[in-house]
Structure formats: C-alpha cells, structure tokens
Amino acid sequence: MKKPALAAAAFAALVLPTIASAGGPIERACLRSDRQAANVATCNCIQQVADMTLPSGDQRRAAKFFANPDEAQDVRFSSRSSDTAFWKRYKSFGEAAQAYCGG
C-alpha cells in the first residue's frame, strides 16, 4: 500500500467512526446504483469519506457519476481548469474511500 493511501486509511480509521452520516448525496446515489457491492454499510462508508474529503458541491457532482459514468469520463478528459481541479479532488476521494472502505 502506498504511503498516502496508508496515511488516509489510518486517519479514516481514527476519525470516521465518530462521524455520523445523514445519508448524503454519495450514499444515496450509491444505494440507488446497480453495482454489486452497493450495500448500506459500504455506501455509508463511502459517504463518510466524502464528508471528510469533498465539499458539498463536489459531492453532488460526483454523485451524478453513479447514474452516468460517461459524465465522469467527460470531466476526466476535459481541458477546463475547473474540471481538472475537481478531478484531482475526486481522485483523492476515491483513493481514500478505497483504502478505508475496501472496495
């Protein structure tokens, strides 16, 4: 495991259990998705990581990717600086969620 991912996992292990999620946009989109790993525990975990790493506007934008993965690719390959900045934050969130939530 890479050092940043390990640090994120350690931080998440200490902080996440104390954060109560109120069913944010990522969690709701995750639960509505047809992904095999989508269950209450996993989706809640991902939302908790989102609460720690993404502002609310980014969470709403990222939640749309569950229903429309092509939108994620459009953002990823966009030349707009705002999309590039968002993608960097989103990628960091994804790495932290994978490290902590295991999936």
Rank of each mutant, 00 (worst) to 15 (best):
V15A: 12
T18A: 15
T18S: 15
I19C: 01
A22E: 15
P25Q: 08
P25F: 00
P25H: 06
I26W: 06
I26Q: 03
E27K: 08
R28N: 06
R28S: 12
R28A: 14
C30Q: 04
S33T: 14
D34P: 08
D34A: 11
D34R: 05
R35K: 13
R35W: 11
R35Y: 10
Q36M: 09
A38D: 13
V40K: 14
C43G: 04
N44L: 04
C45S: 04
V49H: 03
A50F: 09
M52L: 12
T53N: 12
T53Q: 10
L54Y: 03
P55G: 03
S56L: 12
S56Q: 08
G57Q: 07
Q59I: 00
R60K: 09
R60S: 15
A62D: 04
A63Q: 01
A63V: 00
K64G: 15
F65I: 11
P69A: 08
P69E: 13
D70E: 11
E71F: 11
A72Y: 12
A72G: 10
Q73F: 15
S79G: 05
S79Y: 05
R80N: 06
T84N: 10
W87C: 00
K88P: 07
R89P: 06
K91I: 04
G94H: 00
G94L: 03
G94D: 08
A97L: 03
A97R: 04
A97T: 06
